[in-house]
Design a protein around this nucleic acid. Structure first.
Length: 262
DNA sequence: ATGGTTGTTTTACAA
């Protein structure tokens, strides 16, 4: 079973790319971020025509997440628990039946947090990460395959970016950000890409500006974090970076995990 | 070299 995460930076602007990629890559479950659309604006019919079930948690103009799946989910949770006042659409979770039980898959768009000196943005990022940790801790009690996939807006380690000095004061790489990400991992969650390769210069995002793609000036911020029950089933991962060279690309590329749940 | 780009029912802001 192929499970992917992709920040598409606007589903309407990226519809041709999304259709091409779904047709080529044939993922079973796709976690999308930054659909930048309300639920009614999502190109549902076009995606359903390719054989996918569509669940969205949209928002006008910004943010917005979705789950596309070849099999229909049994349950859907919209919004990250822990703050009823949070208006931002950054979390959707689905439960899917597999031969030996059920898997739980979340699409996560973790707050960017920049600029870090902003009185609201960076504290919001850190509190959102703590809410995610609390929710993940509860999910782990179920002892089922859990896959938390998305744009974490976190560069976990210096070798996950082209030039650590450039990112030293950025909300994606500040020590407090990385520590919060480690607290999440320390629950027992495994970074799928790092579990399957020692390769360096693996990136999932290249800025549109200053020729970042051409210079391979990228960062790795899109991650699949796996509960032990999912990590035990992980066979391979891939970062589908060829998509970044397409016409009108997103600044992120799909990151996929291949699992055997049979 | 203090630049550069993309998306959004935009005309500012987020990334």
């Amino acid at each position: 079973m192929k499970i992917a995460t992709w920040n598409i930076n606007g589903v309407k602007a990226r519809l041709d790319n999304l259709r091409q990629w779904l047709t080529d890559s044939q993922p079973d479950i796709v976690c999308l971020q930054e659909i930048k659309s309300v639920d009614e604006g999502f190109p549902r019919l076009e995606i359903e025509a390719l054989g996918y079930h569509v669940e969205t948690h949209g928002q006008k103009g910004f943010n917005g997440v979705a789950l596309l799946s070849k099999i229909r989910p049994d349950e859907i949770l919209r919004g990250l628990p822990g703050d009823d006042g949070d208006e931002q659409s950054r979390y959707i979770e689905g439960v899917f039946s597999v031969p030996r039980g059920a898997i739980r898959v979340a699409s996560i768009y973790l707050p960017n947090g920049n600029p870090p000196e902003d009185p609201v943005k960076y504290p919001y990022k850190l509190s959102w990460m703590e809410r995610l940790r609390q929710h993940a801790r509860n999910c782990l009690l179920l002892e089922e395959p859990l896959i938390l996939a998305g744009d974490y807006n976190v560069i976990p380690e210096p070798h996950d970016c082209f030039d650590p000095a450039v990112w030293a004061t950025d909300a994606l790489f500040l020590p407090e950000t990385r520590a919060a990400f480690r607290r999440l991992e320390n629950l027992g969650l495994v970074d799928a890409v790092r579990a399957t390769t020692d390769a360096t210069k693996l990136y999932s995002f290249w800025d549109y500006q200053a020729g970042a793609w051409q210079k391979n000036n990228g960062i790795r911020i899109d991650h699949l974090l796996l509960a032990p029950e999912a990590a035990d089933r992980l066979k391979a991962t891939a970062i589908e970076k060829h998509v970044r060279a397409w016409e009108k690309p997103s600044d992120h590329v799909p990151v996929v995990g291949l699992f055997d749940f049979n």
